[in-house]
Design a protein around this nucleic acid. Structure first.
Length: 421
DNA sequence: TCTGGGGTCCTAGGACCC
DNA sequence: TCTGGGGTCCTAGGACCC
């Protein structure tokens, strides 16, 4: 059996740990730049705030119901996520950290007979040690575990733990689950399927021939069908695989037209990509740089362009990646536009131990690697960007709007001390 | 005035090889 | 009337996830 442990309204729950007054009140957390709603408490869901809704369209309802609003604080959420995952590791050896707020646990080696009880133990342990409420769904496959989890969440009479261990229970939940809510069914497929009279997961299993699914929904659809029938078909990914693409891109807090400012933003995003590469001990061989105006401002002149640069030698040095990013920007930047966003994507990623050097290389790579290692060491100890390249600048005209940011309670010592005083 | 930021996998079709 | 039979690699685009 497989369990899916999912943190309830994760970002909101994180904010609540350190601010108990938020309990029982409608709370939302916003996307970068305070643009959209990306997490909602139960109370916020009930008054009709939709996932992904732009904040400026929700203003009235937010004020009317005195909704507590927070900018997203990924430093805080990341740290709490790590604590939850660490704790889960004490329950089973085989664990897949699926996302910031979810993990799959393989129960096949668990001795305890009563898996429902085991689920309850997990739930209370995380509540007690981290303070985050979670829901546990247990079933024979990942897809069914997802479904069991959702069932436990949506049914008030459930305890937050649901065990799908008999054919009758599986049947019941398949009938209860709308096709659009099946893991792996997105907007496109759900519209197509409901148009054909497939409304529930049970319809999908009963009414569609396997070869139709294979033909129209590729092998992914076929796997889903198996999973719903109780045959495990989705791969188990124990180890974190190194990323094949790394991207840092942000909308600016306001529109920018000065190339200097965009350069500075781009330098920071490039440095961030380089840091992520070093974290996973990789180097990137290809760089994609892009800039774009704000597509929502229909009256503005629009421009968007990207460029792909082949690096002479794969690298993870911030110095080099920033240099090449600037070269790309020089080619694609056009003056006279209001820019909204820029970004860097790195692909053709290889392990840093397997870099193919060039006979004609002019870069002192050993020296740069030592510099980067030292910079990382200092930044890990004293905080992000304690040491950075001059090109990353200080003006920060591009920086995010974060008007309602909570403190980094668990990672910033000075901040925490200040709060205590 | 204001609309997020990351990722993955799969397939079809083209270009090329012997 | 008949027009080979394997392969590989790459890219763009679609669909999905959180």
């Amino acid at each position: 059996m497989i369990a899916l442990v999912d943190c309830n309204n994760f970002y909101v729950s994180c904010e609540r740990i350190f601010n108990p007054l938020l309990k029982d009140k409608p709370v939302v957390v916003l996307s970068n730049n305070d643009g959209c709603v990306i997490a909602r408490s139960e109370e916020a869901k009930q008054i009709g705030i939709e996932m992904g809704a732009p904040v400026f369209m929700m203003k009235e309802i937010l004020i009317k119901h005195k909704v507590q609003v927070f900018s997203s604080n990924y430093t805080l959420y990341g740290d709490l996520s790590e604590r939850v995952h660490k704790l889960l590791e004490t329950f089973t050896q085989q664990i897949e950290n699926y996302s910031i707020d979810e993990a799959f646990l393989d129960f096949s080696a668990i001795k305890q007979k009563n898996l429902y009880e085991y689920g309850v133990q997990i739930k209370s342990k995380i509540q007690q040690c981290v303070g985050i409420p979670v829901t546990v769904g247990i079933a024979p496959t990942k897809t069914l575990a997802k479904m069991a989890n959702r069932y436990a969440k949506k049914n008030q009479n459930q305890t937050g733990v649901y065990l799908l261990d008999t054919q009758e229970k599986i049947r019941q939940v398949l009938t209860w689950t709308a096709i659009a809510d099946v893991w792996g069914i997105g907007d496109r497929h759900s519209r197509r399927l409901t148009g054909m009279g497939i409304h529930t997961a049970a319809d999908f299993v009963d009414k569609l021939p396997a070869d139709w699914i294979r033909k129209n929904m590729t092998v992914t659809g076929e796997r889903m069908l198996n999973e719903l029938k109780g045959i495990p078909s989705v791969q188990w990914e124990e180890m974190m695989k190194p990323k094949k693409g790394i991207c840092t891109a942000r909308s600016f807090g306001r529109l920018l037209s000065d190339k200097k400012d965009i350069r500075e933003a781009l330098a920071n995003y490039a440095a961030s990509c380089a840091t992520k590469l070093r974290e996973q001990q990789s180097c990137g061989g290809t760089l994609h740089i892009f800039i774009q105006t704000n597509i929502h401002r229909t009256l503005d002149k629009q421009y968007s362009r990207s460029i792909t640069l082949q690096l002479p030698v794969p690298t993870n040095s911030s110095i080099e990646i920033i240099k090449h990013a600037f070269k790309g920007l020089d080619i694609i930047f056009k003056p006279g536009y209001n820019y909204k966003k820029t970004g860097v994507m790195v692909t053709d990623i290889v392990p840093d131990k397997a870099v193919q050097f060039s006979f004609f290389d002019t870069v002192n790579r050993q020296r740069d690697a030592r510099i980067m290692k030292t910079v990382d060491l200092m930044n890990n100890r004293f905080g992000k960007d304690t040491v950075k390249l001059a090109a990353q600048g200080y003006s920060k005209k591009w920086k995010l709007r974060q008007e309602r940011l909570s403190p980094c309670y668990t990672t910033n010592i000075t901040q925490v001390l200040t709060i205590k005083i």
